[in-house]
Design a protein around this nucleic acid. Sequence first.
DNA 1: GTTTGGCTATGACAAATGTCACAAAAAAAC
DNA 2: GTTTTTTTGTGACATTTGTCATAGCCAAAC
Lengths: 201, 201
Amino acid sequence: MITLYLAEDQSLLNTALAQLLGLEDDLQVVGTATDGQTALTEILALQPAVVILDIEMPQLTGLDVADALKQQHYAGKVMILTTFAQKTYFERAVQADVAGYLLKDSPSDQLITAIRRVVAGQTLYAPELVVNMLSSEQNPLSKRETEVLQVAAQGGTTKAIAAQLFLSDGTVRNYLSAVFSKLGVHSRLAAVQVAKAHQWL
Amino acid sequence: MITLYLAEDQSLLNTALAQLLGLEDDLQVVGTATDGQTALTEILALQPAVVILDIEMPQLTGLDVADALKQQHYAGKVMILTTFAQKTYFERAVQADVAGYLLKDSPSDQLITAIRRVVAGQTLYAPELVVNMLSSEQNPLSKRETEVLQVAAQGGTTKAIAAQLFLSDGTVRNYLSAVFSKLGVHSRLAAVQVAKAHQWL
DNA sequence: GTTTGGCTATGACAAATGTCACAAAAAAAC
DNA sequence: GTTTTTTTGTGACATTTGTCATAGCCAAAC
C-alpha cells in the first residue's frame, strides 16, 4: 500500500483527486491540505510515502515545502504538480531533489501511473519542460538591472526606486536606460511588459 | 439519469471530474472537451441535460459558449465553473442566463449536489460573488479614459497611443492626467498597477 | 431649457525621464 | 594576473511626461 499526501490550493481538484486516487487498490490518501504550512506539518507527522505538491499555495509554496523536506532528509518521494511549465520553478524543483514534476494538463490516469513509477525509483519530468528549457531565451539583464526593473515595475518614481535600493537618482536612470537598450524599448512601462512576457521579472 | 457535458481546459481536472461524476448512480458524463469550439459543437449534437463550462479556454471561452447556447434556445441547463470571482465574468454569465456559477475552491461533492439542484430548477450562485459584487468599488474612469489607459498599458509612447486611437497628442496626455488624478497616482506605470489591481483594465 | 458630464483640442510650463559620455572600484571570468 | 563585466556615480542635454487653464461640441439628465 502506497501512502499519499496531497497539497493542492484549489479545493475542487484537491477533493476530486483525493477521492479518485483513493479508489485505486494500492493507493491510500492519508491527508490533504490547501496551504503549504499545514501540508508541511502534517507530512512530517504522517510520513507518507509520496507527497504531491501544487506550487502556488498560500503561506508556503510547494517549492518551499519541498526545500524544507529536503533539509529534513525526508524519506518519502516528493512530486510537484503544477499548471505552467515555468523554467524558474522547474529549476528550483530540481534543486530540491523532487522525484517528479508533472503538469496539470495531462489526464488523471497519467498521474496514477506516475506515482507508481516514482515509488519504483524512477524520476519523471514532464516532457514539455525540456522543450521549454531549450527554447526559452535567457535573461540578458544583469542581476542588479533585473532588480531595479523589478522595483520600477511597482510604479514608484525614480526617487522612490533610488531610496528603496540605496542608490543615487542618476544611477537608477542609468540602469533603466541600460535595461531599455537591452530590451529594445524606450520606457519603463514597455520594459516591464517585455520582461513580464519573458518571465524575467 | 442526468446527462452531463464537461468543458474544462485543464486536462487533469477534466478527466478527474469526469470519472468522479460518472461514479454517481444518477449522473452520466456523455462527453468532455478542453476547448470551447469543440464543446459547443458536441453539446449541440449530444443535447446533454447539464453543461459545465470553465471560462478560460482556448478558441471560445465558456462565456462565449454560454452566449451561443442562449441564442440557440438550448433546452439543457448551463453551469459555469471557474477559479476567480470576477465581477465582469459573473455579470456576463448572468446575462447569458446560466443556471449556476460555481467556484473551483469548493469541494467536489458540492458540485455534485449543485448539479442535482440545478436540474431541479434552482439557480445557484457562489456566495463569494455576492460579497464581491457589493464590496468591489466601481471603476471611476469614463469609457474613453479606460480605453486610453488600456492602450497606454501596452507600453507605447504618447504618439503611438494617439495614432492608435485617432486622437491628438495632447488629448492623450490630458486623458492620462485625468486618469492619474482619479486613481491618485502620477505615472502611467502606477496607474496601470492600480487599474489592474482593481480589475478595471 | 438649462445644466451636467464626457470627448476633443491647444498652448504653455515644470518636472520627470531617457540618453550619452565618462570614470572608478569591485567582482567575476579567463 | 590580466581582462571583462558589474556596480556605482556625476554631469549635461533633449525629449517626454504630467499639469493646468481654457474652450467648443455633443449627449444625457434634470
